[in-house]
């Protein structure tokens, strides 16, 4: 299928389905919680050991467990498609005095690219390394 022709309508439908799924799962979790609260409040005495009360509690926990797990998976796999932002650093070095400087990677950079003369000793300045590092997290 053509990539450019994949319509926005399709994307909209996908978001709608995701929203409906999340709403339904949250409703199921709430139902489970409501069931457990109901049993704890209404069957606080010996009758809470009746199969009816036990059954409700079991169903409540089952709903919470399955809906919770499905919601977790949905959010895990349904995350936005993105490329992690990385700082790409270009390391420049002089082959005679060894002066090393760094800057942001620029298009056209490559390792062992000759950049010209060293500012300090007029030796040959070249790119010695290019690497990515995680952006530093801001301290609160």
């Amino acid at each position: 299928m053509s990539i450019l022709r994949s319509s926005k309508k399709e994307e909209g439908r996908s978001s709608l389905i995701l929203f409906a799924n999340i709403t339904m799962l949250l409703a199921l979790i709430l139902c489970g919680v409501a069931m457990i609260i109901y049993v704890l409040r209404e069957f606080s005495d010996a009758t809470s050991q009746s199969p009816y009360a036990m059954g409700l509690i079991m169903i409540g926990f089952t709903l919470i467990f399955f809906a919770g797990q499905t919601l977790y998976n949905l959010l895990r796999f349904g995350m936005e498609v993105g490329i992690p932002h990385l700082n790409v650093i270009t390391v420049m070095k002089c082959d005679s005095c060894g002066l090393t400087t760094t800057r942001e990677f620029q298009s056209g950079d490559y390792v062992n690219k000759i950049l010209g003369k060293c500012e300090k000793c007029a030796g040959v300045k070249y790119i010695s390394n290019i690497y990515a590092e995680e952006p530093k997290k801001k301290k609160l």
């Binding site: 790409v88 082959d95 990677f105 950079d109 490559y110 390792v111 062992n112 040959v124 070249y126 010695s128």
Partner: peptide, 25 residues
């Protein structure tokens, strides 16, 4: 797309590093 070295480029990087110790050009 950006043309940056990738992890698999370690072998060529080692050679490039060896060469640059003599003459990067």
């Amino acid at each position: 797309r950006r043309g940056t070295p990738i992890g698999d480029g370690l072998g060529p990087l080692v050679v490039a590093r060896f060469v640059s110790e003599y003459n990067p050009n």
